[in-house]
Amino acid sequence: MAGFLVKRILQAVFVVLVVTLLVAWAIRLSGDPAIMLTQGAGSFTEQDLQNIRKALGLDQPFTVQYLQFITGVVTGDFGKSFFGGTSVGSLIAHALPLTLLLALTSLALAVAMSIPLGIHAAVNRGKAADTGIRILSLVGLSFPNFWLAIMMVLTFSITLGWLPPSGAEEPANIVMPALTMGVILTATNVRLVRTSMLETLSAQYIMVARSKGLKERVVLYKHALRNCAIPLITYIGLQFGGLIGGIVVIERVFNWPGMGSLAFDAVAARDYPVLQGVITVLALLIVAANLLVDIVYGLVDPRIRTE
C-alpha cells in the first residue's frame, strides 16, 4: 500500500507539471495580452505596448515566465491581477471555499440520493419501481444543467418565492445550485449503483449472508454496498472533473462568487494571471481528488491494502 501511494503521488506531481505547462502555453497562444488589453482603448504607440509588456513581465522568454509562475505556485503566489493589482492568491482564497462548499454539497446530495435509489432499483429489478427509477434517471440525464437551474429559479424564486434566486449571503442560497448539480449527478450515479449492485447481489457471499439469517437491510447496506463501493468511488473521482466544469456554469446562473465566476470574469477581461491561477488551482483540485480516491480504495478494499 505504501509503495502504491508513493507511486501515485509521484504520478500526481508529474500531472500537475504537465497541466501547468499546458495552461501557461495555451494562454500565450491566444495572442499578445498587451494588444488585447489596449484594444478599443484609444491609440497606443509601440513604446506604450512595450512598457505594458515590461510592467506585466511579458517581455521575458516563455521559459522564464513559466519558471516564475511555477515558483509562484509552490510558494502560493500566483501574481497580481491585471486590473487593480489585487493578488490572485487572495481572489482564489475567497472563491475556492465557496466552490468547494458547493461541489461537496452537490456530491453529498448525489450520494445520498443515488445509493438508496440505485439499490432499490436493483433489488426490484424489472418491476415497476426499477422502471420508474430508470425513466427518472434518463429524464435527469437529458436536462442541460443550466436549463434545470433556470427552471428552478423560475419555480422556487419567482413563482413560489421560497428561495433567494442568487448570491451567497445566506445558507438558503446554496439550496438551488447544489440541488441542480446534485440531481444531475444522481441521474448518472443511480444507473451505476444499480448495475454494480445487480452484479454484487448475484455473488455467492450475498446468498451466504442471507443464509446466516441477517436482515435484508444488513445484507444490502453492509455486505453488498461495501463491495459496490469500489466502482462507485472510481466513478465519483472521474466525475469530479465534470462536476467542477458544471459548477463554472451553475455559479454564473446563480451568481455564486466562486472559482467559476472568477474564471468567467477573468476570461471576459483577459485577466491572464487570474485565469492562469484559477485553472491551475482547479487542476490541482482534480488531481488531489483522484489521489484521494486511490487512498480510499485501500481503505475500502483489503485486497489493495494488503498487496
Binding site: Q204, Y205, M207, H223, R226, N227, D301
Partner: peptide
C-alpha cells in the same frame, strides 16, 4: 464455491 462465498471486504 469457497472462492466466492466469503465476502472479500470483511
Amino acid at each position: 464455491e469457497p472462492m466466492t462465498s466469503l465476502n472479500p471486504v470483511f
